[in-house]
Design a protein around this nucleic acid. Sequence first.
DNA 1: CTATGGCTTCGAGCGCGCTCGAACGCAAAC
DNA 2: GTTTGCGTTCGAGCGCGCTCGAAGCCATAG
Lengths: 158, 158
Amino acid sequence: MATDELLTRALESLGDDDPVSVEAILRLTGPADVPESLTIAQAADLLDVSAHTLRYYERAGLVAVSRDTLGHRVYDAGAVRRLVFLTRMRLSGMPMRDLQHYIALVDAGEDTVPERLDMLLEHRDTVRRRIRELTLSLAATEFKIATYGGEAGPDAIE
Amino acid sequence: MATDELLTRALESLGDDDPVSVEAILRLTGPADVPESLTIAQAADLLDVSAHTLRYYERAGLVAVSRDTLGHRVYDAGAVRRLVFLTRMRLSGMPMRDLQHYIALVDAGEDTVPERLDMLLEHRDTVRRRIRELTLSLAATEFKIATYGGEAGPDAIE
DNA sequence: CTATGGCTTCGAGCGCGCTCGAACGCAAAC
DNA sequence: GTTTGCGTTCGAGCGCGCTCGAAGCCATAG
């Protein structure tokens, strides 16, 4: 499988000077434990979002969550898996609108796989562009820091 | 000077498979031409923002722009240089609030250089974290694309 | 028996960064 | 002399993604 290869590439591109945490890898491949069921507080904690946000995602139609006898939300493995995906996509900048469309495709069945793939490919390119953009800005910032740290150029300081 | 070194590093980290455009390098080091004076439309065009946004930045106190006899804005070299900096920082995610603080420091004189440097260092770290975050998300997305493209895992598809 | 605490729903509100529209001024082109 | 076009000011509005508060339900602790 290409899993290891992809992971290795990801790790490499993160640089050697700041090794990736174990949690990051786990989050990348998904949570190792398949939780039987979580409360909203536990899910929020696991996913590093607020309970408010989880309810908001549910209202937005991104995930269905069942209830216990008290009417409290019960996050099963499926819900958690989907939320891991959703929060990851949100973190990488995919708009709610796109996520709603994507999830609608998922719910529509296997026929939509090609379109889903298209969305993922486009998102991949968007993220790549953003990384390049940030890398450029980073270099510019480091350049400015260098001018501040050393001798100041004629009018380079601002 | 470390300019070449920084640029080289930036270029390297962008990867070999998609060489950096000339414009990107020019934007990184600042526009090569020192424009004598620009209209708002020309400045907007150069900076790739709307005229509305330029007026908004001025209102926000980020840049002072003089006027001609007609009351029209005249962007001189200084204003353009500052706006290049501002738009770059905005693009890399620095909030307006921080930018306002930074510019206030600039306007307050050389005594504030250490604090400005602090802000830049913090911003650098923020951008680095964001790049790492995006790189991880990118790897996850590529992984998902791979599972879609090849054989689908048991319940990996979503 | 009454807190306390965690959950529920609902709708409103907020912070951010623009973005836009209205009403107007001036000048060069036709 | 009017139209076209580019600019001005001002304040309001918008899209996004949450974020919060109020009012209520239920269970366990003291």
